[in-house]
Computed example of a mutant assay.
Amino acid sequence: MKLAFEDFQFDIQALTLLKDGRKISLKEKPAQILALLISQPDKIHSKVEILEEVWPGRTVTEQVVFQNIGHLRALFGDDAIKTFSKKGYQWQLPCDPVDGKAQESSVGQDNAPNSSAESEAVNTATQISVDKSAQLPWKIIVPALVAAAAVGGFLAFA
């Protein structure tokens, strides 16, 4: 099943993401979380549910959910995924099913590169620009967020 939202199309089974008809690099775990959220957009998905679905049978911390949600927000914007305190996450962008035949013809001749080399160059440029914009300085952000949460917790009980 393929769903469209904003300038994106996401294939839930293949875990592939397109933006304006061009493939966007998306790692497996964020893609699995996106598939879970987007396939049931009316549901609030708990961290435990996401952990069980994306990392079945593995012991990982809830931090990996937070990091991967952050990666998706960097890609789609902060408004794409809503956090419900102590409940979980919910997809917020409106989605429409994509007809496979209509999608193939909408990519069309006008946007198609003239050669495979040109096509590869366009795909590489797209991946590079998306990857750079999606990379946040997690080594700085995560400790800052942890410290802020600790201070907030301390102040709440002080």
Rank of each mutant, 00 (worst) to 15 (best):
A102E: 14
C95Y: 01
Q13V: 06
N68I: 09
P56A: 12
I128D: 14
L18P: 01
P113S: 06
G100V: 10
F10R: 01
K2Y: 11
I24E: 00
D11G: 06
I38M: 05
D131S: 13
S133W: 04
G77V: 04
I38T: 00
V151K: 12
L3F: 03
F76Q: 03
A156N: 15
L155V: 14
L34G: 00
D7Q: 05
E53Y: 11
W138M: 04
D110P: 05
M1P: 05
T83A: 14
M1W: 06
L17A: 02
D42I: 09
T61Q: 10
E6C: 14
N68Y: 12
V130F: 12
E28S: 13
K139Y: 09
D96R: 06
E62N: 09
F10P: 00
N111R: 06
T59N: 14
V142H: 02
H45E: 03
E120G: 08
S39L: 05
A156S: 15
I140G: 07
A31Q: 02
L75R: 12
Q90C: 11
K19T: 09
M1F: 09
E104L: 08
Q103W: 07
V64F: 06
A35R: 04
A148W: 12
E49A: 07
K86I: 08
L37W: 02
L18R: 03
Q32C: 04
Q109P: 06
S106H: 05
K2A: 14
S129V: 06
K87C: 11
K139V: 09
L75T: 13
Q63F: 09
A117W: 12
S133Q: 13
I44S: 01
Y89S: 10
I33Y: 00
A117S: 11
V142N: 01
A158Q: 05
K132A: 13
I44H: 03
A156R: 15
A147M: 10
P41A: 08
T83D: 09
T124L: 11
F5Q: 09
A80T: 08
V48K: 15
Q103C: 04
A112Y: 08
K139S: 06
A150F: 15
T61G: 06
A112L: 07
S119N: 14
I24R: 02
G108A: 07
A147V: 08
E53S: 15
K29M: 10
L3P: 04
S105P: 03
K23Q: 14
Q109N: 15
V54R: 02
A158T: 14
I140Y: 07
L18S: 10
G153T: 06
I38R: 02
M1H: 10
S105M: 08
V48R: 15
Y89E: 07
P97V: 07
Q32G: 02
S119W: 11
N123A: 13
L37V: 10
E6P: 07
D99H: 11
A4M: 07
L145C: 07
F157W: 12
I38G: 00
Q67E: 12
Y89H: 10
